[in-house]
Design a protein around this nucleic acid. Structure first.
Lengths: 335, 335
DNA sequence: TTGTAAGCGTTATCAG
DNA sequence: CTGATAACGCTTACAA
């Protein structure tokens, strides 16, 4: 194997082995019609030369890149990272590579991301990103790039979706709370621009309270542990606030409320109860452990990738998968 | 813009616009020598046809894929996810895409990963993976793929590295512990096959204790919260174990010990002290908060990507970056 | 079974 | 400033 600069090409292999490129191509593609003898000869010079086919050239010739684009806002959320590892797992099994596309909060950047995805020439995409709408997905699929969209309703020939459902679980939780005779109104921690999932949960929260004819509270917060922690440290100074049930976006926010409460000498769950909507393994690591809604994001990732490969092979039967959030009770709520 | 199947090619744009491919190519590459008039004409038909250049073909023609390979064991560790987001951030700035390659624990798979990286034809790689040795990196760079390696010493023309240093911080910590008059031997939680970082820390631990002539303990654990938690729940039943200083791999393990202790009615940090070697934001979310060594992995990711682009442009001056772990004191240790 | 040659969608080097 | 035309490294009919 040469340790030098320029990559060995199929042509050089052919020359050295004394065969045509076509034969070399057949060998590296495990094509049937090759004599064991020539196959060995070719294989040997491939090894000797350290030849590795260029995925680029292969992709161009076959019109298949074996690359899947993954579009997410950022990889640094635990639950996204878990999903990513799920996707990776089956991508490896199906022999696909993953190309990451991250969007920030600007609409503009979302659009350039779409451009990038299209020119990147991926075979398909998995999208978990609140910035992208049906139109955006349409645009991607119009370039013949099948897509599976997570946590968003999408229709289209080359698209399918995985939807998270919080409806039943959340509604029942709220009803059970008041049915148990609790008088304190529940509080929902609103985060501006935190995406569809939280928005949907807030809707369920409002609707259920209206149906029950119960009062409720909305507390405006930020999606940051430290800010929320400090905010609630203040908040809990008011004796009127030292009781209540707080529904939080994710573990870190819930932990912020939790810690602010306990650090203020408030008893959890006796006085203050806390729920996390997007639970991760950190739900049961914090103390008191968090009652939380859970969706197994690793599974979601695997599922998404399976759906995508089915879509790519035109074998997909059900274009929508529904996943119900599961309530896991911890020590941060009564009962 | 046509919403149909096959992608529009540069050739079709040329035809419709009534120019040659070369001109279209010049337009999409913002080449100087194009009349504003023709540029507009071409640009208009590009828009009309919804043409997007094929990154594949461009890559093949230019021998630059604008793709960086990222090799990591798995994306589902918080600190890796943070690094990933750092890499992403500057990759976007420098106009590179990221392709993910994950390895599992088998040596075999590591080798096929290398193959994949080479055929993928990436412009460079960022490697943070204990499975890969100097030889493996050499193999990659021998295909003219510059690499930056994280948390591992590497030499080579087309390679540079970022090294984490725990030496001073950990050594000082240990010395200070005994200097303060503590009699109980420290305990190091050994995890089989947990990688170089933990191994190096263990070495420092051993060496420092030998130098001081102090006894120490090694406790064998697994890299799993639940298993460690249950193990220590048992462990703390023995009164002899209800005192000590435990050095743990990462937050989740440290939290396992922490929770096992407090759930066993042990006072932290009075009786049991806990340190996490790889701290994340969860260090200060758990209660009691964790004393932990911190390395800002987001920064490491950014740094790695900057080094790589410099390496790609042959502008790199310093081929090794050192990053010192910082001790951040929490409530899980005295003082 | 093997070789020839025409693509795949670009860029880049020439002339003009 | 613009247009032919030859790469780029591979696959794949079609022939032999």
């Amino acid at each position: 194997m040469q340790n030098l600069k320029d990559r060995v090409t199929i042509y050089q292999v052919a020359q050295v082995a004394g065969v045509s490129l076509a034969t070399v191509s057949r060998v590296i593609n495990n094509s049937e019609s090759v004599t064991p003898a020539t196959r060995k000869k070719v294989q040997d010079t491939i090894n000797a030369l350290g030849y590795k086919p260029s995925g680029l050239a292969q992709a161009l010739a076959t019109n298949r890149s074996t690359n899947i684009g993954v579009i997410i806002p950022s990889a640094n959320y635990v639950y996204l990272a878990n999903m990513l590892s799920g996707i990776t797992e089956v991508a490896k099994e199906k022999n696909y590579q993953l190309t990451l596309f991250t969007t920030s909060h600007s609409r503009d950047e979302a659009l350039t991301t779409i451009e990038k995805v299209i020119t990147a020439h991926v075979d398909g995409t998995i999208i978990f990103d609140d910035q992208l709408s049906q139109d955006d997905v349409d645009k991607i699929t119009s370039y013949n790039v099948p897509s599976v969209v997570i946590d968003n309703k999408i229709k289209g020939d080359k698209a399918c979706d995985i939807r998270f459902s919080y409806d039943t679980a959340l509604e029942e939780l709220i009803k059970a709370y008041y049915a148990a005779g609790n008088e304190n109104p529940m509080a929902f921690l609103h985060v501006h621009n935190a995406g569809r999932l939280l928005g949907r949960c807030e809707k369920i929260f409002l609707k259920t309270h209206e149906e029950l004819g119960k009062d409720y509270r909305i507390v405006n917060t930020r999606d940051s542990y430290t800010q929320t922690y400090n905010q609630f440290l203040e908040y809990f100074k008011d004796p009127a606030n030292r009781r209540g049930y707080y529904i939080c976006y994710r573990d870190s926010i819930a932990a912020a409320v939790l810690n602010a409460a306990t650090d203020s000498g408030i008893n959890v769950p006796e006085q203050v109860e806390v729920l996390s909507l997007v639970g991760t393994k950190y739900s049961y690591i914090v103390r008191p452990s968090l009652t939380a809604m859970h969706i197994d994001m690793h599974e979601v990732g695997k599922r998404a990738m399976y759906m995508l490969t089915d879509l790519l092979n035109a074998e997909l039967v059900d274009k929508t998968a529904r996943i119900e959030a599961q309530l896991v009770r911890g020590q941060s709520t009564k009962n």
